[in-house]
Design a protein around this nucleic acid. Structure first.
Length: 920
RNA sequence: GCUCGGGUGGUGGAAUAGGUAGACACGCAGGACUUAAAAUCCUGUGGGCAGAAAUGCCCGUACGGGUUCGAUUCCCGUCCCGAGUACCA
């Protein structure tokens, strides 16, 4: 009986779907387990073999947990709003909803063929109005709340109004944008519009002027994590800085909690580290420097982490965008400053980055007083100081900061070393170590002692205070695009008002074109009647991360019409126990989701403060390209081994017509018309292709479609092979060479159940040897799955099968538990054999076999005996011996005496079950 | 530059509370079955030296040191590769 994987897989996929085998409900009699994949953006290109890697791993884990008695929530959905569908719509005029729908259908078909155990009744799509109603709802909640820093939580905006009415805003410890101080009387005398403008500075979702990443090619703004090295992540278009009024989320208010709570989740260290860097906490002090432009005196505030170096501050620098520039530029410097500022503005973000080795700047004419030395020091303007961080101004300590050093050298400013014996002749001494000198009261202290001592002195003299700064900025939430969630916001007299909750979802309107208008307004401006009760609605839409920030909550209760997730569902499923996805979301989705969840937690809508308990990053699967070598000026192709004898051009060839690096020359002739009459110079009758690891992409002809693998080998082989390829978290190239090994394994496994030619297993009881094989495997597979070491468990299966074949084992007592062990990896073949064995229920409701140690204990052990670490001979001893008895046996062994040849034993080291080493 | 990973046969990769390095698989070579092919099965396969053979010895986990009876594993230094980040004061 052949292993007919196509028939078997089709049959069981139908069966699972018809019987809703993987549908779950809350069930208080069972412990819950929530396994989540990062849902995909359904692109037009469909899935390639790299995409399912993480899904396969999570599916194996889900199936394993079911066998272990857990009630497993394992859902899937689509991140359906996004740029490519909109770009395609602009080109073709087709509604993005249509292309998205089509792509989703294709994705679904591809996913279904791999045999995932998703509960599809819980599917979500971010572009579905029933779904984005709750994205809009969350936004309105953020609009209606402020962040109370002393309580460390979000509170209703009404509580803030009460405080303002009672005492003004001077004592409120709130996360806010720049705002003037006012008293209670002041507040009460404001007009409604003034009040609303002030409240906007406190809302968690707020409208504010900010410097944004503007991408002219895409015609929209982008968040920091959507920009990489000055180019847009999607499309790779240049990005420039622009001041614009945009909706923003006050993520920065949560910076400390986002940082601290990383300690409470089981993520990889590298991912946590990435988030820590992105949040970028730095502890230091804010200090006031008295400055004078000759006419008027001001207090210029700066931020520093090195308060200990004040004695070496020989000049000040402020950012070109700083509002201080206007105040501190003196008349005689005005022209030079203006010129410098225009020059800076013209530079793109990229140019500014590229020029990190060259310092540019201009003196503004004013002088500051160093509060510790009382020296007069010049105030400069330079673009190496950023407006958006700290106070936008710094004290420059050239001896101990490389950027200040570069600047001082360029403009001949004094450099004063502050650490004993440091060499600053060619570069600054940035390390925080050494003994202080030239520093007045700090002299003789180590840097570590001097930093707090200096801050203490600063506070004592009233020059400033301790301060913690974060690099994490508020998230820019507006996109000038069509294919996204509309903001439930309308404007009355230029003032923003929320759309009433009962009117949600505010559905995306129809437009004639998906482009911005001629006047540069977002596409929604094209919609007729884009208004609410006669008032104009917000025309930008929300960014991609809006819909993906709370989708894991929606899966818990996907059809709920009255809330995002019910209290009952949320308190049962709580949080994601295992989240699998790519590391590319480290500073985007994974920050926003945590922020979003914490916000909902503050409001009492969810019961866990962190959404993803454990997170695994699957590695990227790269492509493995194949090459052919065409002799220049001919249509002749020479095999890899002979190509050095010719002048050739290396050309990519479709990997799907190459098997084990051997080209199918007939297929090759059919592949492209140009090659129809190609000739080949073969080696040993075969054409061998060259290869290289590259990104998987159409242009390299190295895309492998999982459907083809399923056609040729079956889904079970694909699943096991993807796991066998290497450690889950490691990036690795896809190489179809080698898949035969896994396929062969499944065929052998299948054959174990066919003792003659007919299906049949023996009911005899298992032998000790068979039980040993089985129980070693149970232990190994269980440990490996728990440790996400799926590649080694595939190997363990192969070893076990080889051993069982040697034993001619076909006993039900062994094969039935083997089926259960294998079922998470290869669900179709195991389900088929399971039912042939006469089981009425599906294998997913079976119980994972219990490991019994006594079956695996060996009678005797072969010990390698080494002398001073060098292996000499092997000694077989009963496994029951205690270390002392082993030592006695080896001392008495004749081989020992032979190798000692008269020398005396100093020590005998016995590592139980491993090695005996004699030291002499 | 900084931070975090990682360097093991022809290939993918096993093995680290320090204990026979190269499991398992691919590929390759040889063999069995077959008219032939496919499929399947068996044997060998890190390098070197010696031997008819069984086998024995030496060298080998990027490189150079160190700790140890013993290091792929721990420590110090160097080189290379990958990821993240980019003037964050």
């Amino acid at each position: 009986m052949e292993y007919n994987f196509l028939e078997i897989e089709r049959h069981w996929q139908d069966y699972w779907s018809k019987n809703q085998t993987f549908k779950v409900n809350t069930d208080n009699s069972k412990p819950k387990f929530y396994v989540l994949d990062m849902f995909p953006y359904p692109s037009g290109a469909g899935l390639h073999v790299g995409h399912p890697l993480g899904y396969i791993a999570s599916d194996i884990f889900s199936r394993y947990k079911r066998l272990k008695g857990f009630n497993v929530l394992h859902p899937m959905g689509y991140d359906a709003f996004g740029l490519p569908a909109e770009q395609y719509a602009i080109q073709t005029g087709q509604h993005p909803a249509q292309t998205t729908e089509k792509n989703i259908d294709r994705y679904r078909k591809q996913l279904d063929r791999i045999g995932f155990s998703y509960d599809w009744s819980r599917e979500v799509r971010t572009s579905d109005p029933k779904y984005y109603k709750w994205t809009q709802w969350a936004f309105l909640e953020m609009f209606g709340h402020w962040y109370n820093c002393s309580a460390q939580k979000a509170e209703k905006i009404e509580t803030l109004v009460k405080i303002f009415e009672r005492e003004g805003n001077s004592k409120v410890d709130a996360a806010h944008s720049d705002v003037e101080l006012f008293s209670a009387e002041g507040w009460n005398s404001f007009t409604d519009k003034q009040k609303s403008t002030i409240l906007m500075c406190y809302r968690i979702a707020y409208l504010g002027e900010t410097s944004v990443n503007w991408c002219p090619a895409l015609g929209t703004v982008l968040a920091n994590d959507e920009v990489k090295e000055g180019f847009s992540l999607r499309g790779g278009h240049p990005v420039e800085q622009r001041k614009m009024r945009q909706w923003q989320l006050r993520v920065s208010a949560y910076a400390q909690r986002l940082l601290s709570d990383l300690d409470n989740v089981e993520w990889t260290d590298s991912l946590k580290e990435m988030q820590r860097n992105w949040i970028g906490r730095s502890q230091g002090a804010e200090m006031i420097f008295k400055v004078s432009n000759g006419i008027q005196k001001y207090n210029l505030e700066i931020f520093t982490t090195r308060a200990d170096t004040v004695f070496g501050a020989t000049f000040m620098v402020m950012a070109p965008e700083s509002e201080w520039v206007e105040l501190l530029t003196t008349e005689d410097c005005r022209e030079a400053v203006a010129e410098y500022i225009t020059a800076t503005k013209r530079k793109t973000e990229r140019e500014r980055m590229a020029e990190t080795k060259k310092a540019t700047g201009v003196f503004c004419g004013s002088y500051a007083t160093n509060p510790f030395t009382n020296e007069q020091i010049p105030v400069w303007i330079a673009d190496y100081v950023l407006a958006g961080y700290g106070t936008g101004a710094i004290m420059a300590v050239p001896a101990h900061d490389s950027r200040d050093y570069l600047f001082a050298k360029q403009f001949n400013l004094p450099i004063i070393p502050l650490i004993e014996g440091c060499d600053i002749s060619v570069e600054s001494f940035d390390a925080k170590e050494g003994i202080m000198c030239n520093s007045g009261f700090l002299n003789g202290l180590t840097v570590k002692e001097a930093i707090p001592a200096a801050i203490e002195e600063v506070e004592k003299r009233g020059l400033g205070k301790r301060k913690v700064n974060f690099r994490l900025r508020d998230a820019i939430f507006s996109r000038q695009r069509y294919w996204g969630e509309p903001f439930p916001i309308f404007y009355k007299d230029e003032e923003a008002f929320p759309v009433d909750f009962k009117d949600l979802p505010l559905e995306l309107p129809e437009v004639d074109k998906y482009l911005p208008t001629e006047s540069g307004e977002p596409p929604l401006a094209r919609a007729a009647n884009w208004s609410y009760n006669g008032y104009p609605l917000e025309k930008s839409t929300m960014p991609g991360f809006a819909g993906s920030s709370a989708y894991y909550l929606r899966y818990m209760d996907p059809h709920n019409d009255t809330s995002l997730v019910s209290k009952e569902s949320n308190s049962y499923w709580r949080d994601v126990d295992l989240y699998i996805g790519g590391t590319e979301h480290a500073t985007g989705h994974l920050i926003y989701s945590r922020f979003w969840n914490k916000f909902l937690y503050d409001l009492g809508y969810v019961c866990e403060e962190e959404p993803f308990k454990k997170l695994i990053n699957q590695g990227m699967i790269q492509g493995r390209s194949n090459f052919v070598y065409r002799i220049k000026g001919t249509n002749k192709f020479v095999s890899l081994g002979l190509k050095d004898g010719y002048d050739t051009t290396e050309l990519h060839v479709d990997v799907n017509i190459v098997h084990n690096d051997k080209l199918n020359t007939e297929e090759f002739k059919k592949w492209m018309p140009d090659y129809a009459d190609a000739e080949f110079i073969l080696e040993n009758g075969e054409y061998i292709c060259g290869w290289a690891v590259e990104k998987m992409s159409k242009s390299m002809f190295n895309v492998v479609n999982p459907d083809i693998i399923c056609d040729n080998y079956g889904a079970d082989t694909l699943r096991m092979y993807e796991m066998f390829l290497g450690p889950l978290e490691q990036s690795k190239p896809w190489d179809t060479n080698g898949i035969d090994g896994v396929h062969r394994f499944l065929k052998r496994f299948w054959r174990l159940f066919f003792s003659s030619r007919e299906f049949g297993v023996s009911n005899e009881s298992a032998s000790a040897a068979e039980l040993k094989v089985l129980h070693r495997l149970i232990k190994k597979v269980q440990e490996d799955i728990e440790n996400f070491s799926f590649n080694t468990s595939v190997s363990a299966f192969m070893i076990a099968i080889n051993e069982l074949m040697e034993l001619n084992s076909n006993k039900r007592a062994i094969l039935e538990p083997m089926l259960i062990l294998l079922s998470p990896f290869a669900p179709h073949i195991t389900e088929e054999l399971w039912s042939r064995l006469g089981n009425s229920s599906t294998i997913s409701s079976a119980t994972f076999p219990e490991y019994v140690e006594s079956y695996t204990i060996e009678d005797s052990i072969e010990y390698p005996v080494s002398f001073n670490g060098k292996m000499r001979f092997k000694l077989t001893l009963p496994s029951t011996l205690a270390p002392a008895e082993i030592e006695k046996a080896v001392r008495e062994d004749e081989n020992t005496h032979r190798y000692l040849s008269g020398g005396s034993i100093k020590k005998v080291i016995v590592v139980p079950k491993k090695i005996i080493n004699i030291v002499f």
